[in-house]
Design a protein around this nucleic acid. Structure first.
Lengths: 339, 339
DNA sequence: GGCAGGAGCTGGACCGGTTTAGTAAACCGC
DNA sequence: GCGGTTTACTAAACCGGTCCAGCTCCTGCC
């Protein structure tokens, strides 16, 4: 016999299917004695629930979705996502929930996937990342009425619960550190301007520059790629009045920038200090190792997962969880500016 | 009304559930006219199949599984997997198959997941990666009788179909290139010795060294991490007779090794040539950019996906697909050895 | 005109669970 | 010892599809 069903167990135990169902799910309706007998038989027959059968009958699908919109061939390094993913899965797996991951080309396709998975009942909820300014996905997910947790900054995301880190505080801590070292001309290679966190970081830098009396604080938008990071760095370093420090919005760009500086004979940290907004192997691996903002992305993933599971259990739960503000890990790519 | 079912459509169209099912699945049994009418109504009611209901009744689950065994917190860079994943998904998504991804702690846990997902009917098949010497997973998957495609080297993997690249050829091409430049002392920072491809690469290097008359060709096993890559490089470079070229089994170690060389004042490529067995942003990003073995990992993912779908359609299909041998992309980290 | 065959469709069983209405027996307090 | 509540369990409906046997026409052919 291939896959045993509860009917097989019921026959074996001499009870009804219903009784077996009660026993296996730890609900009242059977005596402790019968329950043990049924559990034993189920164990012996190596019975496992058929996830589809469970999902039918209105119950849970036992899976949640994470959809990333980025051109398929350019899914690159981004240690951030790898870490986030592990954190998510660590938490989901103890609650035996599967994670459906899909990478799509653009936001339109992403929305289409939300619609499809929701209506196919394939998932019980979604994790929403890469929050954009006036994000069209929020409206769709609210309309679908499916549990969703937003991983993003503070502020309202429609009525969706969120887990967020304080990007503004983080940026301020970097700028204050550089200013304290004596830097007065700071550049910032920002990410995609459509992202909310990009905007928040740019604003934070501008505010800090004014308050600390910096002579220059320029934010340049990029697409997060090594290519644009390198190109923008080249442009900055070719100027007559070059910045003495550059803040990179991710580690891929920071490493690319370091490469450009080396190539152009600009010493790091002697003539140029480099700070990465992301910390990972990448930042430690290069020479000199990069001063970077460290956050516990794994933990972040766990918290998001927990929040989503809570919302799935009780859709009326209003989660708004602030995670610890990332802290600056000083390594060898920053120093007092020369001269 | 929330989610419409085929019963709703049947009522609306004045036909039976069966007719609707035939119409929606493009099977014979209804007239073209009726089919169009049903499709129109389904469209208007925004009907979508309920994946669980489909999966019940013995049909497909509409998903496949990929399980990776690696300690949760150390899921690092490995651009290889990111690329592979994109390729897999690109192909799966056009066949509306979802990919269930799970990262677990070790092989035992991995096997447990295979058992669970198979018996819960959660997936229709698996992709097996990171093939080990005498891999215990093969036996389990064969016993479960669930369609599986192995991504690995040539040779038998029980009766499981496989998609593979020629690691041996690839290693030979690297060694021949270095030998032609004039290198006679070559070191190789290999990966985990338990992996089949590690063994194949080590053997290939040894054979080539003998044939080409190299004076030294040492393979050192590592765990693929930047830390061990750096440590081993440091050891090698501290020796009196240091190698003039090092081959790294992945790009993370190669970059870490480059960092160590820079730190120790060993010029690359002047005093040391570096070759990475993996190519990705990482290899291009650093300075000097690394000579690396390029393979189309995205394409590889697509081929694996296609193979798996073929086996799911017809479990008796015997796939054994060799992918193009990776080619060496020469950049600036290799040169004629000094002196 | 009678019959075979096929197209077009119906009705209902079925997949493997969950859930509810109903029932019989045990238990309770007075 | 009687009404009422609890407990332990059964039988059957139900979830939303797929699939098959069988029925009714219609067509073609001898």
């Amino acid at each position: 016999m291939s896959r045993p069903t509860i009917a097989d167990i019921a026959r074996e135990a001499g009870v009804s299917k219903g009784a077996v169902s009660f026993a296996l799910n730890g609900r009242p309706g059977v005596s402790e004695e019968t329950r043990q007998r049924i559990l034993l038989i189920a164990e012996r027959m190596k019975w496992r629930p058929h996830s589809a059968a469970r999902a039918l009958g209105g119950a849970r699908a036992g899976a949640v979705g994470l959809v990333l919109a980025r051109p398929a061939r350019t899914v690159g390094v981004e240690p951030f996502f790898a870490q986030l993913l592990s954190g998510l899965q660590a938490e989901f797996s103890v609650r035996s929930t599967a994670l459906q991951l899909l990478v799509v080309e653009d936001t339109a396709a992403e929305i289409e996937v939300y619609r499809r998975w929701a209506s196919e009942h394939r998932v019980d909820g979604f994790v929403l990342v890469d929050l954009q300014v006036r994000d069209p996905r929020i409206e769709v997910l609210e309309e679908l009425g499916i549990p969703t947790v937003v991983l993003g900054g503070p502020g309202r995301h429609g009525r969706l619960p969120s887990v967020w880190a304080d990007d503004r505080e983080a940026m301020l801590s970097i700028v204050e550190y550089l200013a304290a070292l004596g830097h007065r001309r700071i550049a910032h290679l920002a990410g995609l301007p459509a992202f909310q966190h990009t905007q928040r970081r740019i604003r934070a830098l501008r505010d800090a520059a004014k308050r600390l009396g910096l002579s220059e604080a320029l934010s340049l938008p990029t697409d997060f790629s090594d290519a644009e990071g390198a190109a923008a760095t080249r442009t900055l370093l070719a100027r007559r009045e070059r910045p003495t420090a550059i803040i990179y919005d991710n580690d891929v760009m920071a490493v690319a920038g370091l490469g450009v500086a080396t190539e152009m004979g600009v010493s790091v940290p002697g003539e140029l200090s480099i700070v990465s907004f992301d910390d990972s192997v990448l930042a430690r691996i290069v020479h000199p190792p990069l001063t970077a903002l460290s956050r516990d992305t794994f933990l972040l993933g766990e918290q998001v997962a927990r929040a989503l599971l809570a919302v799935i259990d009780d859709p009326s739960a209003a989660v708004d969880l602030k995670t610890p503000t990332p802290r600056l890990t000083v390594r060898e790519s920053t120093a007092v500016p020369r001269g």
